[in-house]
């Protein structure tokens, strides 16, 4: 072990957290929108529009079928356009957000579909508008499942940041490759792996406890 280890790790961790946090926020916003559109537009949905749903569904499948590393390469021009560079953590956020949002869209779609049709019908029978049904019935009723799904997605984004590190995004993944692999610094490789494992555990535990707290409040846990 050398004395630059902690400094490097700390820097890598901050970069990773920066990427994970912002990518999660953007991917969540886009993913929630996609998930809601998928659910309400399907046949028998509260804003039935099967063609819209089909188009979005196909686009989601298209993006999801690309390996993430290829998606980053494809999105490099877009990163350059939005943040002015295709290197570094900020550039990676563009690719990470776009890469993760279709995945989130599907997760959110599945969670929202768990809300029983009867509850939606009851709201319809009261004369509620589709927007009221989305925000007062669909989302609150699905909240515990949504939180669990988002936890999975944030962990997936953490994994993606490590991959993005391989092509110049910075962060812990880049550290592991540049030092651990290319310069034979085993100490850094092992330390990086440990930090990533801990990070994933913390995310999972926080997600679980939030979901549990919601269920407990509703006396469902």
């Amino acid at each position: 072990m050398r004395d630059d280890l902690f400094e490097l790790l700390w820097e890598g961790l901050l970069e990773t957290l920066y990427m994970v946090a912002w990518s999660s926020v953007f991917a969540l916003i886009i993913g929630i929108l996609l998930g809601i559109i998928l659910v309400v537009s399907e046949k028998g949905g509260i804003l039935e529009a099967p063609i819209v749903g089909k188009i979005i569904g196909t686009a989601i499948n298209g993006v999801r079928s690309l390996p993430f590393i290829i998606l980053i390469v494809l999105l490099l021009p877009l990163s350059r356009l939005i943040v002015g560079t295709s290197l570094g953590p900020t550039a990676a956020i563009v690719a990470l957000s776009i890469g993760a949002s279709p995945f989130l869209g599907r997760i959110i779609e599945n969670s929202l579909k768990e809300v029983s049709a009867g509850k939606i019908e009851a709201a319809k029978a009261m004369g509620a508008t589709p927007l009221t049904i989305i925000f007062r019935v669909l989302i609150p009723e699905a909240l515990p499942a949504l939180v669990r799904g988002m936890t999975i997605a944030v962990i997936a984004i953490t994994e993606f940041t490590a991959v993005a590190g391989a092509i110049g995004a910075g962060g812990l993944g880049s550290l592991a490759i540049r030092f651990g692999y290319q310069r034979f610094r085993e100490d850094i490789l092992i330390a990086t792996v440990i930090v990533i494992i801990l990070l994933v555990q913390i995310i999972q535990l926080s997600g679980d406890s939030v979901a549990k707290a919601i269920l407990k409040k509703r006396h469902l846990g």
């Binding site: 009851a122 009261m126 004369g127 019935v137 609150p140 009723e141 909240l143």
Partner: peptide
């Protein structure tokens, strides 16, 4: 108009359909 009319028609269900979040 249908939404407004529905406000004056109450409905109860076999499965109650209450919101668990409320």
């Amino acid at each position: 108009e249908l939404r407004l009319a529905r406000r004056k028609i109450g409905m109860i269900f076999q499965q109650f359909n209450l919101l668990d979040s409320q």
